[in-house]
Design a protein around this nucleic acid. Sequence first.
DNA 1: AATTCGATATGACAAATGTCACTAGGTCAC
DNA 2: GTGACCTAGTGACATTTGTCATATCGAATT
Lengths: 202, 202
Amino acid sequence: MSSISIYIAEDQGMLLGALSALLAMEEDINVVGKASNVKQAWQGIKETMPDIVLTDIEMPEMTGIELAEAISDSDLDCKVMILTTFARSGYLSRALDAGVRGYMLKDAPSEELAASIRKVQKGRKVIDPELMLSAWDNKDPLSDKERSVLRLAESGLKTEEIAQKLFLSPGTVRNYLSNAASKLNANNRIEAARIARQKGWL
Amino acid sequence: MSSISIYIAEDQGMLLGALSALLAMEEDINVVGKASNVKQAWQGIKETMPDIVLTDIEMPEMTGIELAEAISDSDLDCKVMILTTFARSGYLSRALDAGVRGYMLKDAPSEELAASIRKVQKGRKVIDPELMLSAWDNKDPLSDKERSVLRLAESGLKTEEIAQKLFLSPGTVRNYLSNAASKLNANNRIEAARIARQKGWL
DNA sequence: AATTCGATATGACAAATGTCACTAGGTCAC
DNA sequence: GTGACCTAGTGACATTTGTCATATCGAATT
């Protein structure tokens, strides 16, 4: 009978190893490779041609979503599943655009993982249900500039410094921040940044 | 021959299950229970009396450090090991004060876990080396008030609102924020909060 | 009783931030 | 080529924040 070959990309060494152990216990699943960063994963995937790639999102250098996009752009025939801590609708939207077949949360019980993998292998999609709902009406209202200005404000830079980094006038920066805050119903830049980050828009 | 009994507390379902699988593969280690929150873990530990408790820090309701303190205050004879994402010196100091025997990072390779557990069982301490260094000169300079004020400022509340929540005058709040910022070499409340959080002081 | 100390508060001032109305140039569709 | 729209900028003003010197008051110390 056909066993499912799977490649794992996850930057937390402990989880990477533990997931391998978990999946190794399943008779019909075969872990053919693992990596703790996207670059290495991309190499390994091209070599091993797994049925399924299981990847985290937030990793150093490049994100799992970018990995998914690379795979989708290539002629590789493998299905990507995301496994992440973050229930952020922005992430899910981007992941779906990248042709991802599964989006699961690390909060979910580990028993579901193997089951989800088998579903995806059969061609079905597996999206964490609570996320599916929130992703719908939750589109990012921010413009590119607003996003980048917010990102800098978040780390405590003052208007003047943000302006210099982005080659804008301080007044413009304040306008962007003001706009962003009003779009997000925030009272100031701090709150705006917090909200945006929590939604996965930063 | 004596096998090591171990109890796992970890709120991320996926990691909890995967760690169990990982440790189950070791012949001399026996996972006697697991929980995804501190309260449940505390119950389970009293019943199963494990040799070692392996716990995360950040969990809903109560932290793993509080669990360690509870165990240390009780007459239970079990060794606590912390497994966390965060390389924050503040966490480590508090953990050591609570009598913890091991402090490992989730970034570490999973192969080391079993080895560390055996070391601790033999009475040795296992502290992630890079942390040991940074913990030394990195004591929290903040007062309790400064901490709580910073925590609220971080979420975007304005001075007036913080004052109301803490039953202080707005002027006092500003003094505390100003003090905190100067202690942390920050230019404003946002940067101060960022620094403090990153060090594990919030 | 006198002194020291910490926590809290005030007032005053400078600086940064938030808001808004308005201008100027570019691009794009029609 | 006109109008709609986007990006960027300006100026003015109110509000919020950061800083500092100083005051009060009770608890702890001597």
